[in-house]
Design a protein around this nucleic acid. Structure first.
Lengths: 333, 333
DNA sequence: GCACCCTTGCAAATCGATTTGCATATCTTG
DNA sequence: CAAGATATGCAAATCGATTTGCAAGGGTGC
């Protein structure tokens, strides 16, 4: 065969109508044992599987969801994607994974494309788009789970990590070791995790009674290269901080590159801490002190919340799932 | 609105028939300028986008492909996935990414599921399934690009890396440094890259006139943990090799863990080399000597080949794209 | 033996977009 | 100005599965 068999062919083969085949397979209406077995035999012989596109059109359910991330190349996202995948697969769902690069236009386009594809739901970590804008694109009925943005909880279910918790712990740790001159390198401004973490950083510094120096706050793309560039910028300042916290581990690794290039010892000359605790953080040298972001739990929570929203419908109460973060003290700070 | 608008609603709004809207949008039949503009205005006002599910059912083209990988958590795959994504997006395609864990049942199920979803094509790195079996599942018409398996080129387009090239170079390098006792830790047996690489290893040893010791050949899952386990096993042998080549970088990193745990210095006591050259390879300490597997080029080649196959149809000549690999000599060997 | 119910099966409508066949309106051209 | 060509629009069929409404066959009870 050059094309999968249709229900009509199964019906013909079994000598019944397509209706009966459908009922026999779905069990929505009784079908005599004899007929059912005959149909079953035909199904197996022809290797029939219902066409999900047709099914999706009729039932308005595609068993498909969208996972929108900034860049799958950042190891944090595969970890999320993997547990999302594992939860979904059990229920027969599959995911489109789309990279948006955190770009507002890409984010919106991706949302529109996914809507046009009738996905049953969307999981997204917005970088440049507010939850309200997202909602306005996908319409009020689309199940939507947003990673890590407390704002807009009325427009979407939320899975948020308590970034402030880990960052406070981190600042206490740094201050406890005598660090008073601490910089922060965040991601690009917008609606991404960098903003949340920067805000938490400001709070945390205040909590340990340290001043915030605006000239020690920088922003750069969430990549190793971005970190290297911002790191060089930071370390080239006339007054240079003694510690740098970064919005994610990739930036921190880039800053380590910059520190090495500037012949600075880590952590003696410059302490560096990251955020996420990606696998690599434990592998670099010196091993990166960072805040653990439980990617697998985030993914699992997102997928579970989304599936629940899909089955419960839009009137079910909003879900807000908060996950803890914690400092992982290693060698870089 | 609680649901996207349909072509019928656009037609009603513009005061024409759905047919005319379709023709106006596709340009397959002339539509007077006035009508066309009126339709365009309605489209924009209602924010109409054609329903891809309906379109897919009618046209038998979903603008969707499947990317089947063993485990998206292995950094090699995100690198491939990213360039696949970038090529596809330009042409309005999106990808399901499915993890198979290299398990034969999962691989087959995934193929069947993707077939049922009418994807326009499949990119897969098979681990336990032959190309022939894959072809028998998806049928003769499905565009299929396989990563790295020379066998079965009559059943699918191929993107293969010349693993033997890098491995020969590596053995020459190792032998040149005086290593004569070299082990190989491969992946699970089946149809995956480990088999190809192990075969190349045997050839390469012979080429540098070194004997192959069967007790220095082991197999383990393609993960860091797998590498750690096999590494411990290997290093606990009465006669222990002086160098270990691994089927991928993750295994190599696990072997480094094992070496450290056994208080062995790398590379002095035990040289370790990996395969893939994932980002992390350059970050671990000591920096991992490995064979570069050009993931981005692989992804790009896969996506390009698949799109071409989709547009050219199944009678177009088979594509076999070979990409070079090369030794990246760093510190671990 | 009649009425009623339950089981089982089918025809037809539906989801939304595309496309073919047909019909009308407009335009050329000799 | 007649006739053929061209432009433009619509109704209906189609893709494949689901589901509703209808009907026939079989069985039961009184």
């Amino acid at each position: 065969m050059t094309k999968p068999f249709s229900i009509a062919e199964v019906a013909a083969d079994a000598g019944v109508s397509p209706t009966t085949v459908s009922h026999a397979l779905s069990g929505k209406r009784a079908v005599s044992k004899a007929t059912r077995e005959r149909i079953q035999a035909s199904v197996e012989r022809l290797n029939y599987r219902p066409n999900m596109v047709a099914k999706g059109l009729r039932s308005q359910r595609t068993n498909t969801i969208a996972l929108l991330v900034a860049d799958i190349t950042n190891p944090y996202y595969p970890a999320v994607a993997r547990s999302v995948h594992d939860v979904l697969t059990k229920d027969g769902y599959f995911a489109f994974i789309v990279n948006t690069d955190g770009d507002p236009t890409s984010e919106r386009n991706a949302l529109r494309e996914m809507l046009a594809r009738s996905v049953d739901g969307v999981i997204m970590q917005p970088m440049s788009t507010t939850v309200e804008e997202m909602r306005s694109i996908v319409g009020p009925a689309m199940p939507l789970v947003v990673i890590g943005d407390k704002k807009g909880a009325q427009d979407a279910d939320q899975v948020l990590t308590d970034d402030a918790m880990g960052i406070h712990e981190c600042m206490r740790y740094l201050a406890g070791k005598g660090n008073t001159e601490i910089a922060f390198i965040s991601g690009p401004p917008g609606n991404g995790p960098g903003d949340t973490r920067l805000a938490a950083f400001r709070d945390a510094l205040a909590a340990v009674k340290l001043p915030v120096r605006e000239d020690w706050i920088d922003r750069t793309p969430y990549t190793r290269d971005g970190g290297a560039v911002a790191g060089m910028r930071m370390l080239a300042r006339a007054e240079r901080p003694r510690a740098i916290m970064c919005a994610n581990d990739l930036i921190a690794i880039g800053v380590m590159d910059a520190a090495r290039a500037a012949n600075l010892r880590i952590p003696d000359d410059i302490a560096i801490v990251g955020f996420d605790n990606i696998e690599t953080a434990d592998l670099v040298s010196p091993r990166l002190t960072t805040v653990d972001n439980p990617a697998a739990s985030v993914g699992e929570a997102c997928a579970t919340a989304l599936l629940r929203r899909i089955t419960d419908g839009r009137d079910a109460p909003h879900q807000v799932i908060a996950l803890p973060t914690k400092l992982i003290a290693r060698e870089s700070a």
